[in-house]
């Protein structure tokens, strides 16, 4: 299988704190890599390093489709094919839902009408079409999560990273989101999924890595992780 995304020795320090410590991960096209860990384990920092928001320390590297993207600006990394969502939704609050979806494809040569058509189809898929002219700030928290997912998928990136997509979301909406993530993986995208909701992680992931204090403490299939003593200790403290 083609490796879509890979990190080698990825490290990020904030002063004396090592938030991400020599993390090696790889995800192939069509694979969903679950990333778990307690609060402060370094999951979101890892994502921020991958997408270029933070510059890694100590020579750590990020590769997208085999090409090194370390140190490149986030907009360049995004154009290499990485889409993401955020733990707390970061929608463009005072823009319509359609305009929110157009932002990641503003550099495309396609005519505006075609892009608007695609945005409407995406909103239809996320069941947000009736709100397309509303400003994003007028949506509920769960709807903002859906809007972020739609915005992430709009440029059809080969790699998607979802940061706590189920946090604070109603179970019915959660189920809907799980189905969309499954569709995304089946469409051949590499999915990096951060979540505290282990049931969803175990259902969606082909492989899981567990982080603790910035380091990978366990890696493997769902069954390996579920029974791993280090993971149980990190999560339950027993």
């Amino acid at each position: 299988m083609t490796v879509a995304i890979e990190t080698r020795g990825l490290t990020k320090r904030f002063g004396g704190l090592v938030a991400v410590d020599k993390v090696d991960l790889r995800a192939a096209a069509g694979e969903t890599l679950g990333i778990i860990g307690v609060n402060g384990a370094g999951k979101t920092t890892l994502m921020n390093c991958i997408c270029g928001l933070y510059r890694p320390d100590d020579g750590g590297d990020v590769f997208v489709g085999g090409e090194r993207v370390t140190g490149q600006a986030p907009h360049v990394v995004a154009h290499r094919g990485i889409g993401r969502t955020f733990q707390v939704p970061r929608v463009f609050r005072r823009m319509s839902l359609i305009d929110n979806l157009l932002v990641p494809v503003l550099d495309r040569k396609a005519p505006d009408a075609e892009l608007i058509g695609r945005a409407e189809a995406m909103l239809e898929r996320m069941q947000l079409i009736d709100l397309r002219h509303n400003h994003a700030e007028e949506l509920s928290g769960g709807q903002q999560k859906l809007l972020e997912m739609a915005r992430m998928l709009m440029p059809d990136p080969p790699i998607v990273m979802l940061d706590e997509p189920f946090a604070g979301v109603h179970p019915v909406l959660c189920k809907f989101m799980i189905e969309r993530i499954e569709e995304t993986a089946h469409a051949g995208k590499a999915v990096l999924l951060i979540s505290h909701d282990l049931t969803s992680i175990y259902r969606l992931s082909t492989r899981v890595i567990a982080l603790n204090q910035g380091r990978i403490i366990a890696e493997g299939g769902v069954d390996d992780i579920r029974g791993n003593p280090a993971v149980i200790e990190a999560y339950l403290g027993t």
Binding site: P74, F92, N100
Partner: peptide, 24 residues
């Protein structure tokens, strides 16, 4: 225009806009 949309996105959340591919 597309520039106007990019500007508005930058106004609302510059980091998110940059991670969506906008050269802020």
């Amino acid at each position: 225009s597309r520039l106007g949309k990019a500007l508005r996105a930058t106004r609302d959340d510059a980091d998110a806009a940059e991670m969506m591919g906008v050269n802020v």
